[in-house]
Nucleic acid binder design. Structure first.
Length: 878
RNA sequence: GGGUUGUUAGCUCAGUUGGUUUAGAGCAUUACCUUGACAGGGUAGGGGUCACUGGUUCGAUUCCAGUACAACCCA
């Protein structure tokens, strides 16, 4: 068989993915096995795969494939999110480009466009996940707005309303003037931006004087209904009971006192605009101030402003500045760094605004979810996020769930008469309630008007682990009973509050159970300079390009190698490159094994015999470590152990030992053992690198159609023999030392060497000697009791070795090396002696520590003694 | 402004229930090695007073406090 020297990932990937799909290996239905369930964090339906998805879905696939090979009934449910505001914004933009304004469309017409867009772009991202190797049960693919999910959301809304956990009210909300909708607190991103602080004077009524106010928003002066100072501020005490005149509009407003005002900030005097600032709003409530909304929904000045009507709020700021300058009321302007809130979706500056919205009461609902995390019913990895979670949950505020959008789950409230409303799952239910409530049995459906708003996107995704198995509509169905609670949730920490916390809340509220056992938070993918990956920076590579260049396995390994739990991944191309190189290494090891001719007649060499024995133990040890790391969600670490197991132990040591001489055959026993070890290694590597492991596994032995590595059993952790491993470690040191001698003395590898060991044959462990002989190309090994003249020497542990060689000894070089070694050991001895000579140490230290220190001492002394002898010998001969 | 976490080799990170041969890995780097699995490879090296200052202790990189810097969350 002619095997190419490089692994060709392209063909293998599509071939094996199709094979897995054709054989239904990803499918899951309830059975008697233990379930292992993961629900995907649903990506935006019209989105495309980015690096964050790659990381997060690679981890999910690793966990799912591993669980499947551990004979669990693994079920990974895929799906997409309708992404209310994001998708609507895209559709609006697309229509605008075609010359269509949303305002000119009916709700139905707009939704037709939105669905068309969704069908056109929807699901691309799921196809991309397949390229990565994701082993989702695609037959279960969901959408947050498909029929069952839609019905579930409506049911939940009605249920919470009936429990009086959802209410409608006028509150200060975060208003996005671009999308013209309210957004939740979590959707506002605050950043420091340069702005200006304006000092404006307000005339005191009935006096000649003025008070000075510092504000960042002169355009909202038009909505001022008071001026306020701290009650303890002596500077303003004389203004008690006075009134001041608001510039530009010349309105008389009261001067009030409230402890909210910080006397240190600005002039210590604050203008109060209850309609446009959350703190002013609260002060307004306390002091029963009226409130004047000077903005329209789109951020332009309203008729109530009285001035600049129709001007955009930013234009109005300039106009106000000019106007104040003209009247002389603008005293000075300072540069100022201000925290500005922007909408997560549109990046528009958020306007605090009073409006009538739907809210959910969070306090009582969130208690079980808080407890669950604090007492570890739900584990969060890494644990540092527990504090963050607690802090948020303890300070949770009511959730604004209504959005002034069309794309989403329409709020199931119907209005009739004068702003009376009822909440029901559908219009006929609503009609019944409305007739009862109004006492008018003649009310018709046409008398009812459904609320125009839709629900926040997260109001559907917070139900995801339940609705993935239709547990709201049909709470007793087989799937939900079997798969729920799910096992692991893998996602990024930036949606801890948006999503994770709320899912836990919903889990307890609607199933009386947590939604998952473990939450594993990945880091964010950044570039090498720690900048977030973003389209505008152009620093985000296209994952599909990477898969084509480095192979899916290479990209998966690259993502995982550098993503310790909770730490950000600093992406650079060298990562998938390392992954690809690893795949190539595996491929070439396979080529080597496959190239051997097996001869049943020849005997197994001793070196191979011990190599097989050692390799078995190393395998067991590594599988143990991998197990432990997976249990702690230390996936990078588990991969690194796997990587070193294959590259160093198997390829670097084992294969080198058993490799037959060029073009000579290998014995049957060693060959079979090697194929068996290789088979196990492939299984261990499969969750990380599904494609190449399947390809090689299929070629390693004859396989029948329908067989696949992905449905074999993962090798299990076992006890291992530490003595064998330790023995071989010292052999590695010896071999290294001999190689160093060769290098220093310029002795070519082909030239055979003789090794002399200064030891009794009886007390020396000779088991691994054949390995040393083979790897170092030795002509013979013998034991001596005396120092050897004309030989290079080295020490491993406390044993001295000699290699006689023809050349002249580099006495000075040798002396220098010994001196260095000696210094090190003497220094070490001093540090040990310091401890042992300290009476209090000897008295207080535990006995095992003491014993160890004594052993360190005697070892070091022995080593020093032989080094000194060696030095003397060299000195004499000099 | 409040809070959380971190600071260990050039980079990214492990680790130390306080003593485990005077700190480990991967990558990068240096020197050497190409007919014979793999140069996307091999061999052998170099590289760190474990951020700083105090404290507790027989003993601190590890525990405590403070300082500096960084990141994140909240307002």
């Amino acid at each position: 068989m002619d095997i190419p020297s490089k692994f060709e990932h392209g063909k293998a990937e599509s071939r094996w993915y199709n094979y897995w799909m054709d054989h239904g290996f990803f499918k899951s239905t309830p059975d008697e096995r233990e379930p292992y369930t993961v629900v995907i964090p649903p990506p935006n339906v019209t989105g495309v795969l980015h690096m964050g998805h790659m990381l997060n879905n690679t981890i999910q696939d690793v966990l799912v494939r591993r669980a499947r090979m551990q004979d669990k009934n693994a079920c990974w449910v895929p799906g997409t999110d309708h992404a209310s505001i994001a998708t609507e914004a895209k559709v609006v933009a697309k229509l605008k480009a075609e010359g269509i304004e949303k305002l000119n469309l009916s709700r139905e017409e707009f939704l037709d466009h939105a669905w068309e867009w969704t069908h056109k772009h929807g699901g691309i991202i799921l196809e991309q996940l397949k390229r990565l190797g994701a082993s989702c049960d695609w037959d279960r693919t969901l959408f947050t707005m498909d029929e069952k999910r839609y019905d579930s959301v409506i049911k939940v809304f009605v249920d919470l309303f009936n429990k009086e956990l959802i209410y409608r009210g006028v509150r200060m909300v975060n208003w996005d003037p671009q999308a013209m909708t309210a957004v939740s607190d979590e959707e506002v991103i605050y950043t420091e931006e340069k702005s200006k602080l304006y000092y404006v004077r307000y005339k005191i009524v009935g006096e000649d004087g003025y008070v000075m106010v510092a504000t960042t928003r002169p355009e909202t002066i038009l909505g001022d209904t008071a001026v306020c100072a701290n009650p303890d501020d002596e500077r303003y005490k004389h203004l008690t009971g006075k009134k001041v005149i608001v510039p530009m509009v010349n309105r008389e407003v009261p001067f009030i006192f409230d402890s909210y005002v910080d006397p240190e900030f600005g002039t210590g005097c604050l203008k109060i605009t209850p309609a446009h600032d959350i703190n002013d709003y609260e002060i307004g409530l306390r002091h029963k101030l009226s409130s004047i909304d000077v903005f329209n929904e789109d951020g332009t000045m309203s008729t109530r402003a009285g001035l600049f009507v129709g001007a955009d709020r930013f234009k109005a700021k300039e106009l106000a500045e000019k106007e104040l300058q003209k009247s002389g009321d603008l005293v000075k302007v300072e540069d100022y760094n201000n925290k500005i809130g922007r909408s997560e979706r549109t990046n528009a500056v958020i306007e605090p605004r009073l409006s009538l919205q739907w809210f959910m009461k969070m306090k009582a609902l969130s208690q079980p979810a808080l407890d669950a995390v604090l007492n570890d019913d739900v584990h969060i990895y890494p644990a540092k996020f527990k504090n963050l979670y607690r802090h948020w949950m303890e300070n949770v505020r009511d959730w604004c769930i209504s959005r002034q959008l069309w794309w989403g789950h329409r709020i199931p409230a119907w209005y009739f008469d004068n702003n009376e409303f009822v909440v029901a799952e559908n219009i006929s239910g609503a009609l019944e309630l409305a007739r009862k409530k109004s006492g008018k049995p003649t009310l018709k459906e046409t008398d009812l008007r459904q609320d125009d708003d839709v629900l926040d996107t997260w109001f559907s995704s917070w139900l995801w682990p339940i609705t993935s198995f239709d547990g709201i509509n049909d709470p007793e169905n087989e799937d939900i009973k079997y798969y729920y609670p799910t096992n692991d949730l893998i996602t990024a920490p930036d949606i801890l509050f948006f999503w994770i916390a709320r899912m836990i809340i919903a889990g307890y509220e609607f199933r009386g159970q947590k939604p998952f056992d473990n939450v594993y938070l990945t880091g964010l993918v950044r570039d090498k300079q720690r900048r977030k990956m973003s389209k505008s920076l152009g620093n985000s590579p296209d994952p599909i390009d990477l898969i084509e260049k480095y192979g899916a396995d290479g990209v998966r390994v690259g993502m995982l190698l550098c993503s310790p739990a909770g730490n950000d991944v600093l992406y650079e191309d060298s990562l998938p490159e390392q992954g690809r190189n690893f795949a190539n290494k595996i491929w070439n090891a396979f080529r080597l094994v496959k190239s051997w001719k097996v001869d049943d007649e020849i005997e197994q060499p001793d070196s191979s015999k011990v190599a097989v024995k050692w390799m078995d133990e190393v395998m067991k040890r590594s599988i143990n470590e991998i197990d432990i790391n997976f249990k702690k969600f230390r996936i990078s670490e588990a991969l690194m152990i796997t990587y070193k197991l294959f590259w160093d132990e198997f390829s670097g040591w084992y294969l080198e030992i058993i490799k037959p001489e060029y073009q000579k055959p290998i014995d049957r026993i060693t060959f079979d053992a090697t194929v068996s070890v290789f088979d196990k290694l492939l299984k261990v590597m499969h969750p990380f690198m599904p494609f190449i492991t399947e390809e090689i596994w299929q070629l390693l032995l004859e396989r029948k159609d329908g067989e696949s590595i992905m449905v074999t059993r993962m090798p299990e952790a076992n006890k291992f023999n530490k003595v064998v491993i330790a023995g071989f470690e010292s052999v590695k040191e010896t071999i290294s030392a001999i190689r160093t001698v060769r290098k220093n003395k310029d002795i070519p590898n082909r030239e055979k060497l003789e090794l002399l060991i200064r030891s009794d044959k009886e007390s020396f462990d000779i088991e691994f000697l054949p390995v040393i002989r083979k790897l170092c190309n030795l002509s013979g090994v013998s034991f001596v009791s005396e120092k050897q003249e004309g030989a290079a020497s080295f020490m491993v542990r406390t044993t001295e070795y000699f290699i006689p060689f023809g050349g002249k000894l580099d006495v000075e070089g040798e002396l220098a090396k010994i001196q260095e070694d000696l210094d090190h050991n003497r220094g070490f001895l001093v540090s040990v002696m310091k401890k042992l000579e300290n009476e209090r140490f000897v008295q207080n230290a535990p006995s095992n520590v003491l014993k160890l220190e004594r052993k360190k001492k005697s070892d070091a002394e022995m080593k020093i003694k032989s080094l000194e002898e060696r030095m003397k010998e060299l000195g004499i001969r000099n």
